[in-house]
Design a binder for these strands. Structure first.
Lengths: 130, 130
DNA sequence: CCTTGACCTTCCAGTTAGTGGAAGGTCCAT
DNA sequence: ATGGACCTTCCACTAACTGGAAGGTCAAGG
């Protein structure tokens, strides 16, 4: 399979696939014409990567997950540890965003949004506490 | 005031302050020794930037907000528009993260996390649907 | 007067995870 | 043989800093 085919099949853009090869996540073979020749196992890996990335795992995490996936002697605890760390990170991000959302939501609500200059959003950012 | 003083007073790191000057967000004067000489208005701007960034506004947004802040002829609707867009963006991010959190949370819960290799997390990423 | 340490300066490189685009080679169908 | 759809590499760019090196400045203590 050529890169366009695996891109379509895996949902990972061709450019991204080349990038993944660059950083050593996959090692497709090459045909005589220089084109990358993907095997089923490459496609499989790319789909794995696509799903991992969709869950927000970093490339570094994906690399470890892929290694664990191919390691028959793995312990599920290793996988779970990575996932748990990521889950904690997600929770932290959600908490941060929720706090921003709360503050900003209040400010937006309190701003008239008309053609006058008075604006509680700007006042708050300038710390002109009312 | 030197950069260290404003860094302390504004909470914005010195490196970041230099960066903000680089990209034209602030224009501190210079002393004879070449040191940046910050006025109160610079400090004020930096604090404004610090608070804007803490609410997750992009640098581009911050630039516009700062301009609006200094524009007496502004309409609060312009400010509100920027803030509303950002709020929507935050909501989108929270929604994305919440979905990841839900999926990943299930997977983590279902993984034994012991020394055996069987792992629903990896199975799911590999799309070996059970 | 000299030194020491805490400042300050600029500049370069690296971070994350790709994306866009240019220049050029290949393949297949008409 | 020519056109279009592929493919290749390489370089630059994104966001918002951060780290570090090399070197100048300033104030205090000996």
């Amino acid at each position: 399979m050529n890169i366009g085919d695996v891109a379509k099949a895996s949902g990972v853009p061709a450019k991204t696939i080349r990038y993944y090869e660059d950083i050593g996540l996959i090692r497709p073979q090459r045909g005589e014409n220089g084109y990358r020749a993907f095997r089923q196992s490459d496609l499989h890996k790319l789909a794995f990567l696509g799903r991992s990335r969709a869950l927000g795992f970093s490339i570094a995490d994906c690399r470890m997950l892929l290694e664990l996936y191919e390691d028959d002697g793995r312990s599920s605890s290793e996988v779970k540890h990575i996932a748990q760390q990521h889950l904690d990170e997600i929770d932290r991000k959600i908490a941060d965003l929720s706090e921003m959302r709360a503050t900003l939501g209040e400010l937006v609500k309190s701003c008239a949004g008309d053609n006058r200059p008075d604006c509680p959003i700007l006042s708050s950012l300038a710390q002109e506490r009312s």
